Simulated assay, not measured.
Amino acid sequence: MDTIGEQLKKARLKKGLTIEDLQKITKIQRRYLSAIEANDFDAMPSDYYTRTFIRQYAEAVGLNSRPLIRRFEGKPDESYEQLPSATPVKGSRKEKHQKEAKKQTSFKSYLPVVLLSLVVIAIIGTIIYAMRLDIASGPLVPKPEKTVVIGSSSAQSEESQSQSSTTESSKETKESSSKKADNENKFSITSDATELVTYAGKNVSTPIKLDFTALEGPVWIGLQQSGTNAIYYQYTLQPGETISSVVPEEATGIDIIVGASNNLSVKVNNKELAFNKANPTTGKKIITINFDTTKENE
Rank of each mutant, 00 (worst) to 15 (best):
I4W: 07
A11F: 03
E20K: 14
L22R: 01
I28L: 02
Y32V: 06
L33H: 05
S34L: 03
I36H: 05
A43E: 06
P45D: 02
Y48I: 04
Y49F: 15
Y49P: 01
R51M: 02
F53W: 09
A60N: 04
G62R: 08
N64G: 08
P67Q: 08
L68A: 03
R71T: 02
K75C: 07
S79Q: 08
Y80D: 15
Q82C: 01
L83C: 10
P84Y: 04
S85M: 11
T87E: 13
P88C: 08
E95V: 03
K96A: 10
F107Q: 13
P112G: 03
P112Q: 00
V114Y: 13
I121K: 01
I121G: 04
I121W: 13
I127K: 07
A130T: 10
L140I: 15
V141M: 10
S152C: 07
S160I: 15
Q161P: 02
Q161G: 06
S170D: 13
S170G: 12
K171H: 08
S176F: 08
K186S: 03
S188C: 04
S191K: 12
D192C: 08
A193H: 15
A193E: 11
A193Q: 15
T194Q: 13
L196E: 09
V197N: 00
V204R: 05
L215D: 04
V219N: 08
I221H: 01
Q224D: 03
Q224N: 02
S226M: 11
G227I: 06
G227P: 04
T228F: 05
T236V: 11
Q238W: 00
G240Y: 02
E241K: 05
T242M: 07
S244A: 07
P248N: 00
I254W: 07
I254F: 00
D255F: 07
V258M: 06
N263F: 12
K267M: 11
K271S: 11
E272P: 02
E272M: 06
L273T: 05
N279E: 12
T281W: 06
K284N: 12
I286V: 13
T288A: 00
T293Q: 09
T294L: 06
N297H: 14
